[in-house]
Simulated assay, not measured.
Amino acid sequence: MHRAFRDLHGLRFLQIGANDGQRNDPIFSFIRAFGWHGTLVEPNLDFVVKLESLHRRAPRIRIVPAAIAEGRATRPFYRIDASIPGLPNFAQGLATLDYNRILTACRDLGLSDSGIVQDMIDVIVWSDLDPESRLAETEVLVIDAEGYDLTLLRLWDWQRVRPPIVHFEHACADPAEYRHFLGELSGYGYDYVVEGDNTTAFLPLH
């Protein structure tokens, strides 16, 4: 963060796949400590309720109950049934527009496909977040979309907006596609660090 910003106070963020706003969240502590403001996008309505409660005293934080994709639609959204006993903590965050991805996650957890819950959700495009989210002013972009991360990043308008920090999960990405995208980020002037399942790209201070 300090390699991208001289001052961490008051930054404008955009987070896609905000979950409950706290569990394994990379920016919650920054939001609270430095008064960040911005937009949280989350399609799981149970988590939307938790986000609204978490940020009820933060009027400069906007919560959007939707998913981002290539086009506007109402689409099935798949998640693991949170009521299944013995689920590991991370499993509550497994949710995606990709049925095959959630089916793979179920099998990895030793569950059958009966553990999958389907909701119908609103899907919007990046530009639908404007003007309130002021995408052109985004300073920290965070994406955790369970395998949809690179798709969303490729839909981002890099020619117009290059956030100084871009943090995303790459665990579910095709390795060759991921390496190619890292090359694209380098072409946009980003350095990056990889930690576990996540990549943080940043524009160094000049």
Rank of each mutant, 00 (worst) to 15 (best):
H2E: 07
R3K: 06
A4R: 02
R6F: 04
D7T: 05
H9M: 04
H9P: 02
G10K: 03
R12E: 02
F13D: 03
Q15I: 06
I16W: 02
N19V: 00
N19H: 14
N19R: 10
G21S: 05
N24G: 02
D25G: 11
I27R: 04
I27L: 09
I27V: 15
F28Q: 11
S29R: 13
S29Q: 14
S29F: 05
F30K: 08
F30T: 00
R32D: 10
G35H: 02
W36L: 04
H37M: 02
G38V: 09
T39M: 01
T39H: 03
L40F: 02
E42V: 02
E42M: 01
P43W: 00
P43H: 01
L45G: 01
L45W: 03
V48E: 01
L51I: 11
E52Y: 06
L54S: 01
R56F: 02
P59M: 06
P59Y: 06
P59E: 06
R60K: 07
I61P: 13
R62M: 04
R62N: 04
V64E: 11
A66H: 00
A67C: 09
I68C: 06
A69V: 00
E70A: 12
R72Q: 10
I84T: 07
G86N: 13
N89A: 11
F90I: 14
A91F: 07
Q92M: 10
Q92F: 12
G93D: 03
L94W: 06
L94C: 11
A95F: 04
L97S: 10
Y99M: 08
Y99L: 15
Y99A: 12
R101D: 06
R101M: 13
I102W: 08
I102V: 14
T104C: 04
C106T: 12
D108R: 11
L109F: 12
G110N: 09
L111F: 11
D113N: 12
I116G: 07
I116F: 14
I116V: 13
M120L: 13
M120Q: 14
I121P: 09
D122Q: 15
I124L: 13
V125S: 04
W126N: 09
S127Y: 08
D128N: 15
D130G: 08
E132R: 13
E132M: 05
E132N: 06
R134L: 09
R134Q: 15
L135R: 15
E137H: 11
E137Y: 14
T138K: 06
E139L: 09
E139K: 13
V140R: 01
V142E: 00
V142S: 08
G147V: 05
D149S: 15
L152Y: 13
L153H: 07
R154C: 14
D157H: 04
W158A: 05
R160Y: 06
V161C: 12
V161L: 11
V166Q: 05
F168H: 00
H170Q: 12
H170L: 00
C172N: 15
D174E: 13
A176Y: 13
A176G: 09
Y178F: 11
Y178K: 09
R179D: 07
F181C: 04
G183W: 09
E184R: 14
L185S: 05
Y188F: 14
Y190H: 00
Y192H: 11
V194C: 03
E195A: 10
G196M: 01
D197A: 05
N198R: 12
N198C: 10
T200E: 14
A201N: 08
A201T: 10
F202N: 02
L205I: 14
H206F: 08
